[in-house]
Amino acid sequence: MKQPVWLVLARRKYEEPLYEVGSVTADDAEMAALFAQSIYDEHPWIEMIVAPRDSLRTVIAA
């Protein structure tokens, strides 16, 4: 069973935007959040979110 990929975005300061720090694979958002928090713990982030990669839509293709 192939698991969904979740993009992980985070930021360290209020004045900086969220940026992509990596990805995790997980069955649901709860597990994705758990994995993201334990894997990408290299900074004291002030915000971190996960988003399913499938939800992204290409606007301009490379």
């Binding site: 995790v24 694979t25 997980a26 758990l34 994995f35 334990s38 894997i39």
Partner: peptide, 11 residues
């Protein structure tokens, strides 16, 4: 079984 859970297991 997965890298993600290996890290979670450590945590």
């Amino acid at each position: 079984p997965k890298l993600e859970s290996a890290v979670a297991a450590a945590a």
